[in-house]
């Protein structure tokens, strides 16, 4: 028998003792670890979602800042909180993209044939998303700080802002998760997600105060959840936090989760 066959025989004959599943927490952490490995191996995804917001920040601040807010510094303080919202929302598109890719490639078949807690792959991916949202928000924030943005509210406000951004993105992310479970290709997930995100990020109070907009647009901006969280973040980071604005900003993520999380889990459990 060749040494190779001996090695194979020994490996195949060994029977490691395993704990009979399901163990939801450990499995979720394993999937979160996988999500983080994917960020490490595909850093271009993180760069992708950060480049556009940074570009917008630079262009808008230096080009229109003076005209819109009297000075570039004043405009940057106004703009950056909303840009952070845009950043985490762009990042949340990748949640759907990666999920769809997994399903198309057959990796999920293996997971689904294992004795694990059914929602573990999705729950773990969401946990990994917290890392992605935080990393991309911090990157954009760092660029902002270099350009002269000031966090008036201090470290506590910064922490609260990051938590708020995460809660918002995790909630909204369920829409893209559901979408990813419905369409055939990762590319379609991308295209459809942009179609949703473009109008809600531009039709908001991120770039300019709505006072000069036509009435119908003002009405849209007023009910747009993106405006709500932008307002809440401006308050937080500007040192003037408003509880009612924060509460209003939290309504959408919780409502979306309540509706789209069960839909996603149903779609996930459905046969393919």
């Amino acid at each position: 028998m060749s040494p190779r066959e001996t090695r194979l025989d020994r490996a195949l004959g060994a029977a490691p003792t395993v704990t009979a599943g399901p163990r939801p927490l450990a499995e979720m952490l394993a999937f979160a670890w996988r999500a983080i490995l994917k960020i490490r191996h595909n850093p271009e995804h993180a760069v992708d979602v950060v480049v556009t917001p940074v570009m917008f920040t630079v262009i808008f601040t230096y080009l229109f800042g003076g005209a819109l807010a009297g000075s570039t510094d004043a405009y940057l303080d106004f703009l950056l909180p909303g840009i952070l919202v845009q950043t985490v929302m762009f990042t949340s598109i990748y949640t759907g993209f990666i999920l769809n890719q997994d399903i198309q490639r057959g990796v999920f078949d293996r997971f689904r044939a294992m004795p694990i807690w059914r929602p573990a792959p999705i729950a773990g991916a969401i946990l990994g998303d917290v890392v992605r949202y935080t990393v991309s928000a911090v990157l954009v924030l760092a660029v902002g700080l270099v350009m002269g943005f000031r966090i008036e509210g201090g470290a506590g406000a910064l922490l609260a802002a990051l938590v708020l951004l995460n809660v918002f993105a995790l909630g909204v992310g369920w829409i893209f998760t559901a979408l990813a479970l419905m369409v055939r290709t990762p590319g379609t997930v991308m295209t459809l997600s942009w179609l949703v995100l473009m109008p809600v990020t531009f039709g908001s109070n991120i770039y300019v105060a709505p006072e000069t907009m036509p009435g119908w647009l003002q009405a849209f901006v007023a009910v747009n959840p993106v405006s709500h969280i932008t307002t809440a973040l401006r308050g937080l980071l500007g040192g003037d936090p408003s509880l009612s604005a924060i509460a209003l900003a939290l309504v959408t993520p919780f409502a979306v989760t309540a509706v789209f999380a069960p839909i996603s889990m149903w779609l996930y459990g459905r046969e393919r």
């Binding site: 490691p16 395993v18 704990t19 009979a20 599943g21 163990r23 450990a26 499995e27 952490l29 394993a30 999937f31 670890w33 996988r34 490995l37 994917k38 191996h41 595909n42 997994d102 490639r105 057959g106 990796v107 078949d109 293996r110 997971f111 044939a113 294992m114 004795p115 694990i116």
Partner: peptide, 28 residues
């Protein structure tokens, strides 16, 4: 255990990471 017709390993991960993920999932 299932080794499906279409690769049921994760393209983005390394060989070792793929095995480690599954080892963790089965509770090693």
């Amino acid at each position: 255990a299932l080794t499906g017709q279409f690769a049921s390993v994760d393209e983005d991960l390394t060989g070792r990471e793929n095995l480690m993920l599954l080892a963790r999932l089965i509770g090693l």
